[in-house]
Amino acid sequence: MEWLLFVPLAALALGTAAFVILLRNPIYCALALVGTFFALSGLYLLLQAEFVAVVQVIIYAGAIMVLFLFVIMLLDVGHEPPPWLRRDRPRLLLGLGLVALLVLELAVAIGSWIAPGIRGPYTSDYVNAVGNTQLIGRLLFTEFLIPFEITSIILLIAIVGAMVLARRQ
């Protein structure tokens, strides 16, 4: 049952991710990336991380990618001039081959590996009983309070920085 959901979602994620780096029109790339984010959101649901799944859609698909689209349309950057992939075909192929080899190697290594470490107290049953969102909220305001506050400062700096940078002189 889980595989029935995992395999299509994984295929969707990989396929759309490949489109992101292969298509020429930036708008299509951005849309493909939205597809990847949706596939990942589905995978998060499969991993019982409802809060992360929904926030993934709100932040990535709803805000970040809309900003990307906005900038692409505003600048009208259009297509990359050919040759949009680097000219060095042999080296490109060599590089891709090495990447494939690395991923394969990783797959073999990970496949036969047993995760070490001690299991934490948050089992599926416990998370379901208390609620995923409630737990994250509680942890954010207790154990992770200082990082949480620092995040707000980072966001503030980003807002100010973006305004300074994008403002017309």
């Binding site: 932040i59 299991r119 107290p121 948050y122 995923n132 954010l140 990082p147 980072i154 980003a158």
Partner: peptide, 19 residues
């Protein structure tokens, strides 16, 4: 691993990614 830390870090990653 039965830990919530991963999901919380993802939350932070998203916030930083937005910035």
């Amino acid at each position: 691993l039965g830990s919530m830390d991963g999901q919380i870090i993802v939350f932070f990653v998203m916030a930083v990614a937005a910035a």
